[in-house]
């Protein structure tokens, strides 16, 4: 039995400890928002947060993250999440949508470390997440949008990793 803490909930799972977190999230916990696309750390579709940092769940075994705080797209909350949502809806980013959970999780981590990214910052942070549909221009605009929304608010913001 391995204990996992995902989106502020504790789970006990009985699987091979070498199983990638991705498949445990998807199959054991039913959290299918996190996507499989390459399985070899090349595309970013499987990005989740572990203790607030973006991590590729397809190459992360569950024994490595047991006890740590895991956030998936389903559990992304807080000001950054809200402003990203606004940006994503406003720019109508999604096409097929399959890569988008990975894009959003990566963008959320970017905004947390850098609330006002410029285009180069966005390139650096986001270039590991592929979009075969080519939504890159909209992703860029949506991140800028989110960053501008966040900045007008004086309320303390950030992804709610603290709320346990």
């Amino acid at each position: 039995m391995i204990t996992l803490r995902v989106n502020d909930k504790a789970y006990k799972v009985d699987v091979d400890p070498e199983t990638p977190l991705l498949w445990v999230l998807r199959e054991q916990l039913g959290l299918t928002g996190t996507k499989y696309s390459c399985g070899i750390a090349e595309c970013g579709a499987c990005t989740v947060h572990i203790d607030g940092e973006p991590v590729l769940s397809c190459i992360t075994t569950i024994e490595d993250v047991s006890g740590q705080d895991i956030t998936t797209i389903e559990g992304l909350q807080g000001w950054i999440a809200d402003s990203l949502r606004e940006g994503w809806i406003n720019e109508d980013v999604s096409q097929c949508g399959y890569c988008q959970p990975g894009q959003i999780m990566t963008a959320a981590a970017l905004l947390e470390s850098n609330p006002h990214p410029n285009d180069d910052d966005i390139n650096n942070a986001m270039s590991g997440v592929y979009c075969r549909c080519g939504t890159y221009p909209e992703i860029r605009k949506a991140i800028h949008h989110a960053s501008s929304v966040s900045s007008v608010s004086s309320v303390s913001w950030g992804v709610d990793h603290e709320k346990k």
């Binding site: 998936t72 797209i73 389903e74 992304l76 949502r85 994503w88 809806i89 949508g97 988008q100 959970p101």
Partner: peptide, 14 residues
């Protein structure tokens, strides 16, 4: 189809 594709609730074949 936007909002379901934002929060991970959109159901793809997989």
């Amino acid at each position: 189809d936007s909002s379901s594709k934002f929060n991970g609730s959109a159901v793809f074949g997989i």
